[in-house]
């Protein structure tokens, strides 16, 4: 464990807590893409298959449980909670996210580190996570007024993967044989997808104006 990875995990945890806070306290999911949340639940479900088979550390197991429970509860809230579901804008959240699932799975079948079920599912979860934010970014461009919590949620989600990139660089230089090209490239693609969001987020913060993404 290194400081970049710990900071990355804490930032990721913060993004999930910000989202749960928003949904649980103001009982609203306005501006949140259910499709991105469903993709994230699938990412964790396929990545943490080894939850009960491989014990790495208490921290690792605890965080996996937190991410699994939180991502599925967020999906449940938006879909089934009688008040929250009313604020879900399904006419705007129209990204065909199922078109992301199959290509990621096929790519995982072809490009992976080991041709085993667990490893292919793990690689699938990596590719899927890289594109999972797309429905949310499309929704942000459609909904004019982005509320602070939603902006912070997306920012933290992008920031966590950027910190992971620093973690991979650190591990590459400190641990012999630590080479995971698949993880690095998909993590880089994921972070690049946030690039323009980061730019507008920083501009809105610097000029102290409301966050707006160009249509």
């Amino acid at each position: 464990m290194n400081i970049f990875r710990l900071a990355g995990d804490m930032t990721h945890l913060a993004s999930v807590l910000v989202l749960l806070l928003k949904i649980h306290t103001i009982k609203s999911c306005a501006g949140i893409s259910l499709k991105t949340q469903e993709l994230y639940a699938l990412v964790f479900a396929t990545r943490y298959l080894d939850l009960f088979t491989d014990y790495i550390s208490l921290y690792n197991t605890l965080m996996k449980l937190i991410f699994l429970v939180s991502s599925f509860s967020i999906v449940w809230y938006i879909r089934h909670h009688k008040i929250v579901r009313r604020s879900y804008d399904k006419d705007q959240d129209t990204f065909r996210h199922y078109f992301l699932v199959l290509p990621c799975f096929l790519l995982a079948l072809v490009i992976n580190e080991k041709f085993t079920v667990k490893e292919i599912m793990w690689t699938f979860s990596l590719y899927l996570e890289a594109v999972a934010i797309l429905p949310q970014l499309v929704l942000l461009q459609r909904t004019r007024n982005i509320d602070n919590l939603t902006g912070q949620y997306v920012f933290l989600l992008g920031a966590y993967r950027s910190l992971y990139i620093l973690n991979w660089i650190y591990r590459y230089f400190t641990e012999p044989h630590y080479v995971h090209w698949i993880t690095w490239i998909s993590g880089l693609v994921q972070t690049l997808l946030y690039a323009d969001f980061f730019y507008y987020y920083f501009q809105s913060w610097k000029n102290n104006v409301k966050l707006e993404l160009p249509a």
Binding site: R5, H12, D50, N60, K64, E113, W122, T183
Partner: peptide
Amino acid sequence: PLGQPMHDEL
């Protein structure tokens, strides 16, 4: 190494 899980990151 065998047995050791391939991935220790979240």
